[in-house]
């Protein structure tokens, strides 16, 4: 590691970069506390007049609380389903032998390789035929299953030592028992990484809910924001307050689970 003196130019560059990363959020916060009049003044008001009422107006003008709940339920359901379905399949792909395993694994990877536009329209028609447009079930359905999550967990299961598993087998434990009470607890770091990435993806997902929901009491926050923007195109304080409230939960999740997220990404990024 270079000496202390040679480090300061590095810190300067990194700090400038960090400022560029954070500045938009600060400006979002400042604008959210301005009056609409203040937003159109030149030079800008860096010290806002603390219009906290912008925040209450977000709740008043949109079904923000309901949409927040929709986002939460959509995310919780998808994460629980993905953790369950993906971990079972991942374990089977990593540790069990059965005919056709490699072919099925390749078939799953094919899903990862095509862009989402390819399955979006048929997915929409399927959900429409099931009568699930404008319902929570319709929003969550395709996202209950994830080829990406399964791939990631399989990599994780393959990295685990097999001694414990062998010992459990010698003790007479069956396959599911070994998976459930031996391997799942061992895979906890991987499950958490995958779960947190799913939370992020589900919370921020825009395109799918945008096409299946148009009832504003059924939509998640992402779609709610696009509606808010459509109705209040230039009321920036209101838009900034809404967008800040909508992204805040994920920023908190990230701060709490920082290590898991970065480890999860690093896990997918290494071949």
């Amino acid at each position: 590691m270079p000496s202390r003196q040679r480090l300061w130019p590095i810190h300067v560059i990194l700090a400038v970069g960090a400022a560029a990363m954070v500045a938009p959020f600060l400006w979002q916060l400042i604008t959210s506390l301005q009056t609409t009049g203040e937003t159109t003044s030149v030079p800008p008001h860096f010290l806002p007049s603390w219009q906290w009422s912008n925040y209450s107006q977000v709740f008043h003008d949109t079904k923000f609380a309901q949409q927040f709940l929709n986002s939460v339920s959509q995310t919780v359901i998808r994460v629980l389903a993905q953790v369950l379905f993906c971990s079972m399949a991942a374990y089977a792909f990593a540790r069990l032998r059965f005919p056709g395993r490699n072919a099925l694994f390749m078939l799953m990877l094919a899903v990862l390789m095509v862009p989402s536009q390819v399955y979006l329209l048929p997915q929409y028609q399927l959900v429409q035929n099931m009568g699930l447009l404008n319902t929570l079930a319709g929003v969550v359905l395709p996202g209950l299953f994830s080829a990406f999550g399964t791939f990631m967990l399989r990599q994780f299961f393959m990295s685990l030592p097999n001694e414990v598993e062998e010992a459990a087998r010698l003790d007479g434990a069956g396959t599911f028992r070994i998976f459930w009470s031996v391997m799942l607890p061992l895979a906890k770091p991987g499950l958490i990484s995958m779960g947190v990435l799913t939370v992020l993806w589900s919370w921020n997902d825009l395109l799918w809910p945008l096409v299946v929901v148009n009832d504003d009491s059924k939509m998640p926050l992402t779609v709610g924001l696009s509606t808010l923007q459509g109705e209040h195109l230039t009321e920036y304080p209101l838009l900034m307050a809404g967008s800040l409230l909508a992204s805040l939960p994920m920023i908190l999740v990230f701060l709490a689970a920082q290590r898991r997220i970065t480890e999860g990404i690093a896990l997918t990024g290494t071949k």
Binding site: W27, N204, S243, A246, Q258
Partner: peptide, 29 residues
Amino acid sequence: LYRVLYFLPVVSMPAAVAMVWRWLYNGDY
């Protein structure tokens, strides 16, 4: 610390981020 700061944009809701940048990019104000 740097990792947290540089990662904030990654975890923020893209729909919200787009709204913030639309405001930052506004031609007049």
